[in-house]
C-alpha cells in the first residue's frame, strides 16, 4: 500500500515543480504559456541522454536539463516577447512551439524517435524528489517575494503603468519565462529518472493545459495555491480510478466548480502560511465573541 501511495506522491511532487515554474510566469507575470510540456520534455531528454549515454552525475544532469530548457525558452521568448505579442497571440505561439518540440523529438536520432528512450537509470527516489521540491519551493518563494517578483506582478496588474515606472516589460517577461522553463526542465529530468522510460507522446498539450489549470484554479499570484491544486490534480485521477470512465467528468466538474465559486482561484493573491492561518483563526474567534478567551490575547 505504501508503495502505491509513494508512487502517487512522487509523481505529484514532480508535477508540482513544473507548476511552481509556471506560477512565476502565469500567476505572477500574467502571461499564458500553452506549451510548457515542451520544456518538461527538453529537460527530461537532456538529463536522460546525459545519464544513460554519457554516464553523467544525476544531479549535474538534472541541472543541465533545466538549463537546456531555459536556453530554449530564450530562443522562443526572444522574438515573441520582443514583438510584444498580445497575451492570446503569445499563448498561441507557445502552443505551436509545444507541438513543434514534440515533432522534433519524434524525428531526432539521439532521442530514438517516437519509440523513445528506454532503460533510463532509476535515480529519482522519494527522498531526493521531496528534498528538491522543498528546495525549489523556497527558491521560488524567495524569487517571487523580492523586487523581481514585484516587477512581474506590476506587469500583470497594469503593464502600461509598469512601463511608466521604468520597468522593462521585455526583460522581466523573458526572465520569468526562463525561470519557469528551468523549473519545468528539472521536473522533466526527475520524471524521466523515476519512470525510466520516456517518449515524445508523453509530453502533450493536455499536460500543458493541466499545468495552466492548476495555476488558475490554485490562484493567480499565489505559490501555495497552485502547489496544493497540483497535488490534488495529480492524486485525483488515482482516487477517482474506482469511478473509471466518470473520473474525467468529475475532474472537469471540480474545475468548473472552483471557477464558479472562487474565480480568483482557491488561494488567489494569498499564501497558505503561518500568517494566513493566524489571521484566519482570529477571524473565526471574532465571529464567536460568546466564547470566553482562555489566554490574555482578547
Amino acid at each position: 500500500m505504501w508503495n502505491y501511495i509513494e508512487g502517487i506522491l512522487c509523481l505529484a511532487l514532480i508535477s508540482v515543480i513544473s507548476v511552481l515554474g509556471l506560477t512565476v510566469f502565469t500567476g505572477f507575470t500574467g502571461m499564458f504559456s500553452m506549451g510548457h510540456a515542451a520544456f518538461i520534455a527538453i529537460g527530461a531528454y537532456t538529463a536522460s541522454i546525459l545519464t544513460s549515454k554519457a554516464h553523467a552525475n544525476f544531479y549535474l544532469a538534472l541541472a543541465l536539463g533545466g538549463l537546456m530548457s531555459g536556453f530554449v525558452s530564450l530562443i522562443i521568448g526572444y522574438p515573441t516577447l520582443r514583438a510584444k505579442l498580445q497575451n492570446d497571440y503569445f499563448a498561441i505561439a507557445t502552443l505551436g512551439f509545444g507541438e513543434a518540440v514534440r515533432v522534433i523529438l519524434e524525428n531526432l536520432k539521439i532521442t530514438n524517435g517516437a519509440r523513445g528512450l528506454v532503460g533510463i537509470p532509476a535515480r529519482s527516489t522519494f527522498l531526493n524528489i521531496l528534498l528538491i521540491t522543498v528546495l525549489l519551493t523556497i527558491i521560488t518563494a524567495h524569487y517571487v517575494y523580492s523586487k523581481y517578483g514585484r516587477q512581474s506582478v506590476a506587469i500583470r496588474e497594469d503593464h502600461v503603468a509598469a512601463e511608466m515606472m521604468g520597468i522593462n516589460l521585455f526583460t522581466v517577461r523573458l526572465r520569468a519565462l526562463f525561470f519557469s522553463a528551468v523549473m519545468a526542465g528539472i521536473g522533466g529530468g526527475l520524471y524521466a529518472h523515476y519512470v525510466n522510460f520516456i517518449q515524445p507522446s508523453m509530453f502533450t498539450s493536455t499536460q500543458s493545459t493541466t499545468l495552466i489549470a492548476a495555476v488558475v484554479a490554485g490562484g493567480m499570484g499565489s505559490i501555495t495555491g497552485p502547489f496544493v491544486a497540483m497535488l490534488i490534480f495529480s492524486a485525483l485521477p488515482e482516487i477517482l480510478r474506482v469511478a473509471d470512465m466518470w473520473r474525467l467528468v468529475a475532474y472537469g466538474l471540480i474545475l468548473v466548480l472552483i471557477m464558479v465559486l472562487r474565480p480568483q482561484g482557491i488561494f488567489g493573491y494569498k499564501e497558505l502560511n503561518f500568517k494566513f492561518v493566524k489571521r484566519w483563526i482570529k477571524k473565526i474567534r471574532a465571529k464567536k465573541p460568546a466564547l470566553p478567551a482562555e489566554g490574555g490575547d482578547a
Binding site: 524569487y143 523580492s146 523586487k147 523581481y148 514585484r150 516587477q151 506582478v153 506590476a154 496588474e157 497594469d158 502600461v160 503603468a161 509598469a162 511608466m164 515606472m165 521604468g166 520597468i167 526572465r175 499570484g221 493573491y269
Partner: peptide
C-alpha cells in the same frame, strides 16, 4: 487611474522605488 489594484498602497510605491535605487541581484 492606473494603480496596481491587487497590491497594497505601500507596495504600489515600493515598485516605483525598486526601479530607482534598489540594488540586489537575482
Amino acid at each position: 487611474i492606473r494603480l496596481f489594484q491587487n497590491l497594497t498602497v505601500l507596495e504600489n510605491v515600493i515598485i516605483a522605488l525598486d526601479q530607482q535605487n534598489s540594488n540586489y541581484s537575482v
